[in-house]
Write a protein that binds this DNA or RNA. Structure first.
Lengths: 224, 224
DNA sequence: TTAGGTCTACATCGATTGATTGAGGAGAGT
DNA sequence: ACTCTCCTCAATCAATCGATGTAGACCTAA
């Protein structure tokens, strides 16, 4: 359960596995929560602005703007957010530029897990000393943000008849290619109920079958 | 519930996050199971010998013996085990050595998750695309591929067993949520033939049904 | 010429899905 | 209290899909 004590983190790295790895390691920590991922510098800025994390783990070398530029933008817009640079090699010239751009520190990608976690917590403890007004804003966002809720909100902003929260959850699983029976077991409901939800989803999206529903959902960015 | 149907996988990479990332992604798959990790070439051989996996994901650049040497050792000792090389950059000279050493294929570390999973499943089913005997053909195809059909070309460049032109056409229609009967009438073929094509598409993409095929295709950018 | 890949086609059978209808309970707002 | 929405469940029936095996025509590369 996400609480206001969680360290909200955004990951920015162009290598999916690095992101997944970090996300995995961080998400199982009780005091950390990965709230967003980005695969380019520009995307990192977007994601950071929309999620207002406590900390951004930023790869330096990325397509679409280096981590340096992104760091600068983020620091300017979100003074309460710490940026930690990720580097592959020990000596990377950009690290210094990054620090000058406002980064709080840097970590090597082959850092052992425990060390990384310790670093993040230390960084965050230091950060809280400076936070005041922005921390409150961040908290407000935390309390009102939740993956499902965001999708739900996204659906409500579109032109289609809004999906209910439950329907959005079903749609999520549908978009993974899950079968009715699998969806049912994940959500702990009967298959009949799942069918009902899917029926409603298809009606609302104006499509005929599950495949079209998934396609429509992906195009509308209701999922993924 | 691990069964004999699970694809047993060993990860060998010196970067902990890459390992964690892969483990995370693979372990949540119902048909895959990471049975061991190694952070060096030598360790990779040890772990492989003691766990006898179906597949080893092997980084090429590692301390303690390159992935090439380790690949050779593993292939010799365990002919039933396939080795897939991991590389950071698209053109890496060692890839060719690796293929010669008996590796079944290679993938880039920034490969999209869906594509990786599809590749692993295809490889496990015995996909021959990157087997040493046909690797040359495949590479030649990639280097000389200049098909009019961009999507077809994209498929050929990816890790997965390439779709034929016709299959790509069918996949296109599939991605519009078309039914078999509709696809058949558009392409002027019988519904039976459409089913055959779809069957092959699903096999190659390593998925179970049409919905997953469409999702995978969209994520791999084979369509739209 | 032979071998292999591709595209086509068909049949059978079980699994999955979708349409339809009906209905009860929980919670929010009137 | 009443209404409305959402979530839940059930039962039936038709449509669609997916697995599997077989096979002929065509083309290309060896």
């Amino acid at each position: 359960m996400p609480t206001e004590k969680m360290i909200r983190i955004v990951l920015a790295d162009d290598q999916p596995f690095i992101r997944k790895g970090l996300r995995y390691v961080l998400d199982i920590q009780e005091d950390m929560q990965v709230v967003g991922e980005a695969s380019s510098g520009e995307e990192a800025v977007d994601v950071a602005l929309s999620h207002v994390p406590n900390l951004v783990l930023m790869d330096i070398r990325m397509p679409g703007g280096t981590g340096i530029t992104a760091t600068k933008s983020i620091i300017e817009a979100l003074p309460g957010t710490k940026v930690v640079l990720l580097t592959t090699f020990d000596v990377e010239q950009y690290v210094f530029e990054g620090i000058r751009a406002g980064a709080s520190g840097y970590l090597l990608k082959d850092t052992e897990t425990e060390e990384l976690l310790a670093g993040i917590r230390a960084m965050h403890r230091g950060a809280t000393l400076f936070n005041s007004s922005t921390a409150k804003q961040a908290l407000d966002q935390i309390l009102t943000s939740n993956t499902t809720d965001q999708l739900h909100a996204a659906a409500q902003q579109s032109l289609i008849e809004p999906l209910t929260k439950r329907e959005t959850e079903v749609l999520q699983l549908l978009a993974y290619g899950k079968r009715n029976q699998e969806i049912s077991s994940v959500l702990c409901i009967s298959e009949a109920t799942t069918k009902t939800h899917i029926h409603h989803i298809m009606q609302k999206l104006g499509v005929r079958d599950r495949t079209q529903a998934v396609v429509a959902a992906m195009r509308m960015k209701l999922v993924k």
